[in-house]
Nucleic acid binder design. Sequence first.
DNA 1: CCGTATCCAAAACGATACTG
DNA 2: CAGTATCGTTTTGGATACGG
Lengths: 128, 128
Amino acid sequence: MDTMFPPPGNCNSRTVIDVLANKWVIYLLAALRERGPMRFNELARRIGNITQKVLTQTLRTLERDGLVSRTVYPTTPPRVDYALTDLGRNLSEVVLVIGEWSHDHADEILTARDRYDTKAQAAPVPVN
Amino acid sequence: MDTMFPPPGNCNSRTVIDVLANKWVIYLLAALRERGPMRFNELARRIGNITQKVLTQTLRTLERDGLVSRTVYPTTPPRVDYALTDLGRNLSEVVLVIGEWSHDHADEILTARDRYDTKAQAAPVPVN
DNA sequence: CCGTATCCAAAACGATACTG
DNA sequence: CAGTATCGTTTTGGATACGG
């Protein structure tokens, strides 16, 4: 592979990258990886700050992409389990790498951000 | 680390993950990793389908986060080079992992997507 | 060449109400 | 419990024009 992301159109890699370029997808894959199969509301609580609508949407696209499986148990009330497929578990390894890097370097990013904002603040902007 | 993405508020990891959850960021880091320092228009051509506005925006946030450095050579016409910082180069390793996975599994995703769409199509929807 | 500024369209997201 | 449907807002992105 001489070039990783050949400019567009004919490049399949990009369509996959676009899947991962979504924070909800990353949180979801991470949660399912950590805890195994989970129910809808369980996932919602675990992720936090996600609405039903977005959770549903995200789960559907992951199902469509063959990364997550959906199993319905016809009980009352209904029970629905979401789990990683083999492909999804495989991808979750990548997510694990992302998570570890984030954990390890979060403070460096935040520090850089502070420094940048402080400098911007120091610019000689007239009071009015 | 018992839990990778503790639900929100107090979690620094998430703010970093949110940086990477952006296709332009991923493309940019990949391009700079592959080819070393690049000029503005060079980056634009390399990535393709990105507008000046978005390229500028993305570069600024990466600069703010300490991932990319910006060097201006005061020639006429001006020359501006963008390069990975040490931190950015470090993160680009993660991007490399993403890129490789995408390359290797793109067809599986696309196949799953086709299968899903075909099934949806097969649903017994009345003509009207 | 390397941007910024502005306006506009499209997509993502949140809140809320309702259903099997 | 596990969703769907609708509406309004916010965010993101594209197109274009202009400036150092």
